[in-house]
Computed example of a mutant assay.
Amino acid sequence: MSIHHTHNDLHSEQGALAGEHPGRAQHPVIKVRDLAWLEFEKPDLDGAEVFAHAFGFATSFKGPDELHLRGTLPGTPAVIVRRGARSRFTGPAFLAADDADLLRLAGHLDAPVTPLPEALGGATVDVRDPSGARVRVVTGCHPLPALPGQEPLVHNFGGRRPRVNTTQRPRREPAKVERLGHVVLQTPRYRETLDWYLENLGLIVSDFLFYEGQRSRGPTMSFIRCDRGSEPADHHTLAMTLGPRARYVHSAYQVADLDVLAAGGEFLKDAGYQRSWGIGRHIQGSQIFDYWRDDKGFLVEHFTDGDMFDNTLQPGWAPMTASGLAQWGPPATADFMGIKPGRESLAEARSFLSALRSSDNEFDLTRLRGLLKVANS
């Protein structure tokens, strides 16, 4: 296997220094193929469905206590919402390559293989990562057929002008979600949790970020992709960041192109929903992004034109700053950074104290100073 060590003009300013985290396990138990779906609980399934349709999901199943939301591409649902007393994220589901991998993982983690409900089909191994988050690894689910999508526009660029005697009029309508792209999670046990995903699910790191002045203490955020060998995978399927408590940060869903993303944003704005941050283009992953708050305040992202890497690319390393989150676009907002006054930022502030008082995590006073520096960078 040919390994790319340089990161000039690729995806990060520099590679690893001697002795730093390699970004992959030498002998993982299995290698998951993708992120299958995300699971939430909400008390109001009808309200969840109204926002979901405005955001661009289609409903693939709805019962009295469960809602499945999907994109246009074939496969599994992207999001499953179950009725609950309060709104919360309950965990991700990853797609195993086959039944044999599921059995291998079950044996290694001493967890049972159990059937999924008939609406999904297939089987799952349910475990907890070191942060306490429930993680499902699934296989054999009923495949959903493709739905009609939105075609990218034909553009006239430079000397290439394929569009003649035709105007551009993208419709102001929901940006149809094509598929689930990634989920971002925060954990106070970052290194232990990162290694758990690499060793058990075979994920590999695309990029590490570190607090400025604290690189010698190791990374504090990682963008992690599936290892499909020579077949390219999304730059990150899972991103993980150090913080004072374990929590969902955001999830991202692919749409057809920039015009679909922008027109879909205008539709959401007209419908009264809150844009959190956008439109811009990220650095790590390169996605064009647009972030919104759903009906219960969960942060969700439309994205398009993301990076795809095979397993030969080694991790990049870069300092973690708010200004380093985008190549272009408006500055990261207080809402996106989690420092806008409100219930969520208050809960995060309270968790600082509990994390600092506990020795059973990696979030200490030095890390707190680094995080506060990021928020004000």
Rank of each mutant, 00 (worst) to 15 (best):
V260A: 15
E178P: 07
W196K: 10
D207R: 11
H236G: 08
L261E: 03
K176G: 07
Q214G: 04
S222F: 01
L198D: 00
G181P: 06
L194T: 03
V205R: 08
E199I: 02
R225I: 00
K176D: 06
Q214H: 12
T241F: 13
Q186F: 11
G229C: 11
S251P: 09
Q214M: 14
R247Y: 03
H236F: 09
G229S: 12
V255A: 11
R247I: 07
E192Q: 15
P244H: 09
S222G: 15
K176C: 12
L198C: 11
C226I: 04
G213P: 07
A233M: 04
S251E: 05
R245L: 14
A256F: 04
S251R: 07
L180S: 11
A256D: 01
L261I: 03
T187F: 02
V184Q: 10
R228C: 11
S206H: 09
L203Y: 01
V184C: 13
P232R: 07
P219L: 00
N200M: 03
G265Y: 00
P188F: 00
V255Q: 06
V205C: 11
L185Q: 10
V184F: 12
H236I: 04
Q214T: 06
Y253H: 15
R247H: 13
F210L: 04
R172I: 15
G202L: 05
M240Q: 13
W196G: 10
G243V: 02
R215W: 00
H182Y: 11
L180K: 09
Y190C: 08
L185R: 10
E212L: 12
P232S: 08
N200L: 05
I224Q: 01
A246P: 09
D195I: 09
R217P: 02
Q186L: 14
Q254V: 15
L194E: 00
S251N: 11
I204P: 04
P219I: 00
A252V: 05
G181H: 10
L242Q: 12
E212D: 13
R191G: 10
V177P: 02
G229T: 05
E199D: 15
R191H: 14
Q214S: 13
L201V: 03
I204M: 14
S206V: 03
H235F: 13
T187W: 00
E192T: 14
P188M: 04
Q214C: 08
R191A: 15
R247K: 14
V205M: 08
V249Y: 12
G218M: 07
Y197I: 06
M240V: 12
E199L: 11
R225H: 03
V183A: 13
P232K: 05
N200Y: 03
Y197A: 10
H182P: 08
S251F: 01
L185N: 08
A233N: 06
Y190H: 15
Y248N: 10
V177R: 01
M221F: 07
A246R: 14
V249A: 13
D207W: 01
P188S: 05
E178Q: 15
F210D: 04
F208L: 09
I224L: 08
F210E: 04
Q254M: 13
V177K: 02
P219V: 00
T220I: 14
L198Y: 01
L261K: 07
V177M: 05
D259I: 06
T237Q: 11
W196Q: 04
F210T: 02
S230C: 09
G229D: 07
I224G: 02
A256M: 04
